[in-house]
């Protein structure tokens, strides 16, 4: 056992679990009879970050800012437009399809919309087990026990096995999705809003489960959620996105206790507090989110920022490291820290 672990560490060397460099994903906008491309939705526009093995990075940001697209593109569920995605040093975007199929189980995604991603015609046992058999995750004679224990770990009971997705509540379906991903023994999982459809007690179970699995198997997560209290609890590092770009990244302490970017501050102030008598001091964001097909010039946030200066409208702010590991892209901090080329 010991040696096996050693080997693995040596094999992967120092390369982080995931390194994303200048990732871009543009969706073409087509129009007219000929379906000519008339423009692009810049869903992900030059995003760079790194996740070390065994850590969790939380990704937060306004709806439509491109979080799901980041997740799907880096797993190559969509082809990227530009940039580089390295899993333990190797680029899965360069793999031929056959090879890609082989490594698929290692890199999983728990999808935001549990219903759309479950086949309505398969019973639960098949949904979870199909790929387990296909990829020979466990020997055939252990298959049934393995299925039971995975389901159990995700809060599903054996009597659910023969039921079909439409017979489940929203939260139960989400647990099926989680079980399906975990059953493949992945090493990296993109969790796209994995608990937002769940009630808090199951939420707590699933979060504890994800953390336990992480400890036991050294799993690495990209955890997308808009529930900041959950993100704070589960993440080691946090990235804040706005309109296709990362505006601030840092450890969770950096982000939650010393938020720098005006958007991060607004986001934190909007989080609901479970106390009906609590006083709220909310920063209301003026205006609505600009379209990613036609983002504002300069700093993309300038149309809604209460601290907007002249320079913000014309010049794109550079990403600066203002304290170790704490990066922010905002002109307010132009005289602090150092510029990072790609974070």
């Amino acid at each position: 056992m010991m040696t096996e672990k050693h080997e693995e560490v040596r094999m992967t060397g120092d390369s982080p679990m995931l390194r994303v460099k200048n990732l871009k994903k543009y969706y073409p906008i087509k129009a007219g009879l000929m379906q000519r491309v008339v423009g692009y939705v810049k869903a992900v526009d030059d995003v760079s970050f790194t996740i070390q093995r065994g850590r969790t990075m939380g990704l937060v940001g306004e709806s439509g800012c491109g979080k799901t697209t980041v997740g799907k593109t880096l797993l190559r569920l969509h082809e990227k437009t530009a940039g580089e995605v390295l899993f333990m040093g190797s680029d899965i975007h360069q793999l031929p399809h056959k090879e890609l199929r082989r490594v698929r189980p290692k890199y999983q995604m728990i999808f935001q919309d549990p219903f759309a991603s479950l086949s309505p015609r398969l019973p639960v046992a098949e949904i979870i087990g199909e790929a387990v058999r296909e990829h020979q995750i466990v020997p055939n004679d252990e298959y049934n026990d393995y299925l039971d224990s995975t389901m159990k770990a995700c809060g599903l009971e054996p009597y659910h096995k023969d039921r079909y997705p439409h017979e489940f509540s929203g939260g139960q379906r989400q647990r099926i999705c989680i079980a399906r991903a975990l059953a493949l023994k992945p090493s990296f999982i993109v969790c796209d809003e994995p608990v937002s459809a769940l009630d808090v007690s199951i939420q707590a179970q699933i979060i504890n489960l994800l953390k336990d699995l992480q400890e036991e198997f050294g799993l690495t997560y990209l955890f997308i959620s808009h529930d900041l209290s959950v993100v704070e609890h589960i993440s080691d590092d946090v990235g804040v996105m706005y309109l296709g770009s990362l505006v601030e990244t840092g450890t969770k302490k950096n982000i939650f206790q010393n938020p720098l970017h005006p958007y991060t501050k607004a986001l934190l102030s909007a989080a609901p507090v479970p106390d009906p008598t609590a006083k709220r001091n909310r920063i209301i964001l003026e205006g609505s989110i600009p379209s990613p097909a036609n983002p504002p010039s300069g700093c993309k946030f300038h149309t809604r920022c209460s601290e907007c200066m002249d320079i913000c409208k014309v010049e794109i702010p550079q990403t600066r490291e203002v304290e170790p590991g704490h990066m922010v892209a905002c002109h307010l901090y132009n005289d602090q820290g150092t510029v990072v080329e790609d974070a």
Binding site: S201, N208, V273, T277
Partner: peptide
Amino acid sequence: FKNPQHPYTVGLMASKPVINRSVERLYTI
């Protein structure tokens, strides 16, 4: 919220993470 009576309600309230009040492990029922 201030005076939950049923043990299930009490458990529900305890399971919820709250910002800036960190716990090592979330309570689960």
